[in-house]
């Protein structure tokens, strides 16, 4: 599971040896540094269960209901596609337009404990709420911020369906709504690079303790905050090393509180524990990390199955997280 090279061991050995032996060891070290693939990182073991491919056109997000039904945002096709827990297509709903049940390039979604589906209908500047059968229930029309149209890219809802958080990508902030009244409660954050500042926040998730994780794309990090809008911590940083992001996109939290973050350009899903890099999703049988083609939306269901939406590959890959 682990394949690490401990430099300190090499160094100790180098001190004890002399002359040619020492230089040889150093050269060996350099060689090992360059040759790879020698991973000095952990892999979070997953087992690939199945892929879902159903004429998707650049799907972006996924959510799973309590009965295991899988809801996929097929935004360029202007619809939500629904599959059973084995990945078999069941039905779809939505069409292009601005009316109830119609979409204009939706991007993100979430699902509450009552299996109500919340869809960020980006082009229509609203959030639509549906039943598990795809019946339109309600909508939240977002208002302009400082004269600029809102661009809702994702939503996060608590399990009780009382609080809804909506990411406004273009306005670099998070909206908090009361789902009972559909009233706006708070606007959290603004453009910037400091705490509770964002540059193109994209997808969001909420864990069971109501902590929110917001992927801050151009700031190349995930910001964790409370449901009151208080900053908790940054997760990840800029770069291509472990624990760093080039294009973070999706975020999900498993039953043990491990945070999964996809990077669409590097094509990996990294796992963080308490805000600290923990591992990369991989296959222990081959000792290789999983390479995805433009991974975007993530979801971890109650059975700790990891769903990865691969936008460029136009599929949803489903894995079982091994404990």
């Amino acid at each position: 599971m682990k394949r690490m090279v401990d430099c300190s061991i090499l160094l100790a050995k180098g001190k004890q040896a002399g002359g040619l032996v020492r230089n040889g060891l150093i050269l060996l070290f350099v060689f090992l540094m360059m040759v790879g693939p020698v991973y000095s990182l952990n892999l979070t073991s997953v087992t690939h269960l199945f892929d879902i491919q159903h004429d998707f056109r650049q799907p972006s997000d996924v959510a799973v209901a309590s009965d295991g039904s899988i809801y996929v945002v097929d935004g360029v096709n202007q619809c939500i596609k629904v599959f059973d827990s084995k990945g078999e297509f069941v039905f779809s709903f939505g069409e292009v337009g601005g009316g109830p049940g119609q979409f204009n390039y939706p991007l993100g979604m979430d699902i509450d404990g009552a299996d109500r589906i919340y869809v960020a209908d980006s082009g229509n500047h609203r959030v639509q709420i549906f039943s598990t059968k795809g019946r339109f229930l309600n909508e939240i029309k977002m208002k302009n911020k400082n004269g600029k149209m809102p661009d809702p890219t994702d939503v996060a809802v608590d399990s009780h369906g009382t609080e809804l958080f909506v990411v406004d990508n273009d306005n670099h902030c998070i909206y908090k709504y009361d789902l009972k009244t559909l009233q706006l409660l708070d606007v959290i954050g603004h453009a910037g690079i400091e705490r509770m500042e964002f540059r193109y926040p994209f997808l969001i998730t909420m864990d069971k303790d109501k902590y929110l994780y917001i992927v801050d794309v151009i700031n190349t990090r995930v910001q964790e905050m409370t449901n009151d809008g208080k900053f908790v911590q940054f997760i990840g940083d800029w770069g291509v090393e472990k624990g760093q992001f080039f294009r973070p996109k999706g975020v999900a939290v498993d039953s043990e509180g491990m945070v999964y973050v996809s990077d669409s350009y590097m094509g990996v899903v990294q796992v963080f524990d308490g805000g600290v890099f923990h591992s990369v999703v991989g296959d222990v049988s081959t000792n290789e990390l999983w390479r995805y083609k433009s991974p975007v939306g993530l979801f971890v269901d109650q059975k700790d199955r990891l769903y990865v939406v691969e936008m460029f590959a136009e599929r949803v890959s489903v894995f079982q997280i091994n404990r």
């Binding site: 991007l107 980006s122 890219t153 294009r247 996109k249 669409s264 350009y265 936008m311």
Partner: peptide
């Protein structure tokens, strides 16, 4: 595409 996938512009 890594920006034009909806995360910055759609």
């Amino acid at each position: 595409h890594s920006c034009h996938d909806g995360s910055v512009a759609d």
